[in-house]
């Protein structure tokens, strides 16, 4: 077992633990911190998977921006009235077997045989390589992503922005 594999196993275990902690923690704030932890771990895994640029983006966008927003909203919303002791709804009883069954099936699928991993080409996933292809071959999609962002902005303004006037 080389170090690469060991680090994968360690990081994978950490990610699973973080996710479970998020699922089971009573308080939203704890869950959010667990999720943040999972994302940081994932960022490390990306780096190991020859995707340094994605690892950086994961840190900046996910851990930096999105999780910040989530934590911000968790602190912002005051949930005094809610019963925080009863965190799981009644459908847990049905949901857990269903999800477990699905997982088992998918694992069975995986066991059927997966193409083996080869050695990636040189400079694979470097920023230079990545951006060159992104901005030449996928320029249109890249631009369309900006349209999606714009739509998001408009949507948020529509939802929150004109509250006073609509009355």
């Amino acid at each position: 077992m080389d170090t690469l594999n060991v680090s994968f196993y360690v990081l994978g275990a950490l990610a699973v633990l973080g996710a479970l902690s998020m699922l089971l923690s009573r308080q939203p704030m704890r869950a959010a911190v667990s999720l943040l932890f999972v994302m940081l771990v994932l960022s490390g895994m990306y780096a190991l998977l020859s995707a340094p640029f994605m690892a950086v983006l994961q840190l900046i966008i996910y851990a930096g921006a999105i999780m910040t927003l989530i934590i911000f909203i968790v602190t912002l919303v005051d949930v005094k009235g809610d019963d925080l002791h009863k965190v799981f709804s009644q459908i847990t009883l049905f949901a857990v077997p269903a999800v477990l069954g699905l997982s088992v099936l998918i694992i069975l699928h995986i066991m059927q045989g997966i193409p083996a991993a080869g050695q990636p080409p040189a400079e694979f996933g470097s920023v230079k390589n990545f951006t060159r292809i992104l901005l030449s071959q996928y320029a249109l999609q890249f631009e369309l992503a900006s349209v999606l962002l714009l739509v998001g902005i408009v949507g948020i303004s529509a939802l929150r922005g004109k509250k006073e006037e609509s009355k």
């Binding site: 459908i91 049905f94 949901a95 069954g101 699905l102 699928h109």
Partner: peptide
């Protein structure tokens, strides 16, 4: 209850993948 609807989705997915799997 939206979560119930999601549960139906998961169950549907379960059935579907079972069908695919056992056919394979």
């Amino acid at each position: 209850d939206m979560q119930f609807y999601l549960l139906y989705m998961v169950v549907g997915l379960l059935v579907l993948s079972a069908v695919i799997f056992f056919n394979v």
